[in-house]
Design a protein around this nucleic acid. Structure first.
Lengths: 345, 345
DNA sequence: TCGTTTTTGAGGTACGCACATCATTTGCGG
DNA sequence: CCGCAAATGATGTGCGTACCTCAAAAACGA
């Protein structure tokens, strides 16, 4: 005989199917004593609800929304691709995904979108966004409406997010520092730190983690301030020139983000390409190429495919009020060198 | 309206439900022209079979066997734990797992067990084993019987294995070499290589990968022969003493396997603990502790939880003759330092 | 004890699909 | 054009669960 079914529970508990159903689905109108009897039968037989059948019967088709910033970042694009792929697969598990980009500059618009979604009867929302007050209020509104919110990549600790899917950014920064310290060897003990912007929480935390390990384990290495480029090649060239002029040559470069289109060129103009230890974050076509070319030494990444699948699983679970398998959803921080670069699929 | 169902397909293709069913399940007795019409309707409507409902209707309860060597290795134990956890979860997806250990010394017994399983009507087998001729024949027998075989951790390229779940061992060795070379810095450019045994194919390939990168990128570093310990602390102490005496001091130690219980003690006896760069494989309680203590510098690992879940998913898919989502099943080679050690869960 | 409320039982329908049976239609060779 | 085989249609049942309705029984208060 296979797994026990509701019928077995009914027989075992000496009640009818209807009563078992009432207990299992927490419907009212059952005496506490009867509830206990049914629950005992469940425990005794080791009954586990067949979720496939349950969802089939419910006829539920979870509808969720995922919001990504419209930043021209290759990482976000990579993540979007992964989400689309995962969404296609998830459709076979009766879940439809509404994947959108929002203008990163207009948080009020994002908030309005979220309000619309809540009103439109969505069963879950996942988003990657910086935690501004406006957003926080919008998310609390969602929470009040019973819509679970999942934070992606960058956590939203003060916004009643039901779950965070992403790596520990502080640990990511610490790891980058550890590799930087060890790879630097006999090179000039000075590191330049470059970022596109420090808006998202994860950049800030990476920087903190980086500094923590640098101070603790490599006190002899000097770490510069964060140079913000806002994605503009001109600014990148300018700030690097200025920094080199004022603080002197460097042995390493730490990219808080996923790198820049123009970075290779600027580095080569400055005669640094391949000469300095370069460590960055996120696996994108750019960073992949840089690793392969050999001028980037390491990339600290999170598996976007995993993020995408995990996000959808968590949204599904939250929407159906099912428990979450923590160990499956925990993301690992990945260190990518040229040698363990994933093959193009 | 929700997702299209078989009924929609039938209407769209202008055929009956029965015919749609015949086409979808590749049953005989349908003209090529009709098959094409149905498939076109499927493509047009973007029909995706509801696997939950399909499996429910099939009422199948896949039974699979997983065989692990009874080696006293912490890695195998960790893997077993992960498999048990995954199996518990998989039971809710109508799949029962028969998890066993076989005596690593007796391949004939393993072959006999496999023959029994084939006769007993199993729908899939996964195993971690060295590819000996006896085993190869047994696996071909399984293949002939239509039982899919999944190789875990160590590939079985000549044994008609339907799938390999594990990382690229050559790449693992290359990665270890790259880290060793860069971490070594100004230390004595000599590396000692230690293994429990060189039986499993993965050890051999790691060694090959390690040597390849060492020769290419760090020609100045001398790499010793593989010292086999067969798990005995005495042997470990002996071979290390001999090697140090004959070849002189070393700056790094490369553990081809997951380390030894006695390693920390022997290293400390020889005054090497924390003095030499130590790199090994697989995340186990031992290697975790060593990383945390700081005397191991890096561990190249594969995510056992992922291996376990992937193995079960692949077995399930093979048994049900469903396609496999390659990108989800591809394992990443993980580099673990103290800084990105996963938290105890 | 009676009437009322609460609890329980019995039974049906639906979800999307697999699989089986039997009737009917179609295509094809002669 | 007939006969036969192949192809297709029609229809039913079951998988395990959710959810609904109505009737019956039990518990309860007065």
């Amino acid at each position: 005989m296979g797994r026990p079914t509701v019928t077995d529970i009914a027989r075992e508990a000496g009640v009818s199917l209807a009563t078992v159903d009432r207990v299992l689905n927490a419907r009212p109108g059952v005496r506490a004593k009867t509830v206990a009897a049914v629950q005992e039968a469940v425990a005794r037989l080791g009954y586990v609800r067949d979720m496939a059948a349950a969802n089939l019967a419910r006829g539920r088709s979870t509808r969720v929304a995922i919001l990504l910033p419209d930043t021209e970042s290759q990482f976000v694009q990579t993540l979007q691709d992964a989400l689309e792929e995962a969404a296609a697969l998830a459709s076979s598990a009766r879940m439809q995904v509404d994947l959108r980009r929002y203008p990163a500059s207009d948080m009020h618009l994002l908030a309005a979108t979220l309000a619309d979604l809540a009103a439109g009867g969505i069963s879950g929302v996942a988003l990657m966004a910086p935690e501004t007050p406006v957003l926080r209020d919008a998310l609390r509104g969602l929470h009040a409406a019973g819509v679970p919110v999942v934070a992606m990549v960058s956590d939203l600790p003060h916004s009643a997010a039901a779950h965070y899917v992403g790596i520990d950014s502080h640990a990511a920064g610490r790891t980058a520092a550890m590799l930087m310290g060890r790879f630097l060897g006999a090179r000039t003990p000075r590191v330049m730190v470059i970022a596109q912007s420090m808006l998202l929480r994860d950049s800030i935390e990476r920087r903190r983690g980086f500094d923590a390990v640098m101070q603790r384990d490599f006190p002899g290495i000097e770490v510069g301030q964060t140079l913000e480029t806002h994605g503009a090649p001109e600014t990148l060239r300018e700030v690097m020139r200025l920094s080199l002029a004022s603080s002197g040559p460097v042995g390493g470069i730490y990219l808080l983000g996923s790198g820049h289109r123009a970075l290779a060129q600027v580095l080569s103009e400055l005669g640094l390409l391949g000469q300095v230890v370069t460590i960055g974050h996120e696996l994108t076509p750019h960073t992949k190429a840089a690793l392969q070319a050999g001028w980037m030494d390491a990339v600290i990444a999170q598996n976007v495919g995993h993020i995408a699948r995990s996000t959808l699983r968590v949204l599904q679970a939250k929407a159906l009020q099912q428990p979450i398998n923590e160990s499956q959803e925990r993301l690992r921080l990945e260190i990518i060198l040229r040698e363990n670069l994933p093959h193009a699929s």
